[in-house]
């Protein structure tokens, strides 16, 4: 298998092309810019489309256009750009258009800074745009997953006719790790609902407008049923040392990597600490968290945010198990020792 020492952001681009992505529309922003830069280099080499759009809004609407025309397509940005894209994401969800969007999170709110943060959880996972929609959210925590989950993202997007957002952070985007790349590129097949500018497909209509209230309610009910099926079928997570744990840390993305070191250090000192890592944030692994909650003393949710995933953990447990929280913000990332300190304090209290 081909192996490369590669930045997470670049691994996304290569993964996208291996997944048969035909078009990239984007706007540069730190810490996501390498994605646009490498897309501008690699997409044309394969006869694929790269356009640096005039804005994030234009980029997501180009995605809408190209996705409606049956193409696998993607865009990428960071928090401020995602805020702008929310309009288009809502339209894509409404018109059931598949696409992959990477959010390499930075510090907010506002212009914030370019340090790594996880403060976009709410706007991404809960749906930052208008209307009753969800998007599938994947949370990579390594260079390998930046490639793998991008590829999976295209598959899930087509399978469910839904936008898929890769929710990563500045560190996962900027970090270089060894990545194994598959050597069998994928090519998507013709979609029955898309427009191909030919006679067979011309009666397909790409729209999110339903003027009649009854029709729009029916459309919404259909969407909710789809989301319920996604919750049944697409939950993904990783568990480390949870089976005998007294305390389980819950973290995603870069924070889960740091918690892993905390856990290993704690285990060396004989503390029964486990780590639970959601790889899908929607659907959220609520059921498994609830099961784990029956056997442990408490959970410690760790995020580089003010505690956003925390609410999903609490909802999953519905009061059946205590949930503690530790978070850093503004581009500050907790060290493994710092989290260990929090754990030991909590264990004593």
């Amino acid at each position: 298998m081909a192996k490369e020492l590669i930045k997470g952001n670049v691994a996304i681009v290569k993964g996208a092309l291996l997944a048969g992505c035909e078009a990239y529309f984007g706007y540069p922003i730190t810490p996501a810019s390498e994605i646009a830069e490498y897309a501008s280099l690699l997409f044309p080499k394969l006869g694929r489309v790269f356009i640096q759009a005039e804005s994030e809004i234009a980029a997501i609407n180009m995605i809408y256009g190209a996705s409606g025309a049956g193409a696998r397509c993607m865009t990428a940005s960071s928090g401020p750009g995602l805020s702008l894209k929310q309009e288009g994401i809502s339209y894509c969800a409404g018109a059931e258009l598949p696409c992959v969007i990477a959010d390499i999170m930075r510090g907010g709110p506002g212009l914030g800074n370019i340090g790594p943060e996880q403060g976009d959880y709410n706007q991404i996972v809960k749906g930052g745009g208008h209307g009753n929609y969800r998007v599938i959210v994947l949370a990579p925590n390594s260079g390998q997953e930046m490639c793998d989950l991008t590829m999976l993202g295209f598959e899930l997007a087509d399978k469910w006719r839904s936008p898929v957002i890769l929710l990563a952070d500045g560190f996962t985007g900027q970090m270089m790790e060894q990545v194994d790349f598959p050597e069998e590129p994928v090519r998507s097949t013709r979609k029955s609902w898309a427009l191909y500018a030919d006679r067979e497909s011309k009666h397909n209509l790409i729209t999110s407008i339903y003027l009649s209230h009854a029709d729009l309610e029916a459309h919404n009910i259909k969407l909710q049923k789809k989301y319920a099926r996604i919750e049944q079928e697409e939950v993904r997570f990783e568990e480390l040392n949870c089976s005998d744990a007294d305390v389980v840390m819950i973290a995603y993305g870069i924070t889960s990597r740091i918690c892993r070191t905390t856990m290993e250090n704690a285990r060396e000192q004989g503390l029964k600490i486990g780590l639970f890592r959601p790889r899908t944030l929607f659907p959220f692994p609520s059921q498994r968290i609830a099961e784990l909650g029956q056997h442990i003393k408490f959970f410690l949710t760790v995020e580089c945010s003010n505690g956003q995933m925390l609410h999903d953990v609490r909802l999953a447990l519905n009061g059946t198990c205590p949930v503690e929280f530790y978070g850093r913000m503004g581009g500050e990332v907790p060290s493994a020792e710092e989290i260990f300190g929090v754990l030991t304090r909590l264990l004593k209290s």
């Binding site: 035909e22 256009g65 190209a66 025309a69 339209y91 427009l195 500018a197 790409i206 407008i209």
Partner: peptide, 20 residues
């Protein structure tokens, strides 16, 4: 064939369709 756009975004959609 028809795609329905958000307000003002039709040229961006058109770009996406034409490039694809």
């Amino acid at each position: 064939g028809n795609e329905q756009a958000a307000h003002g975004r039709a040229p961006a959609l058109a770009t996406g369709v034409k490039r694809a």
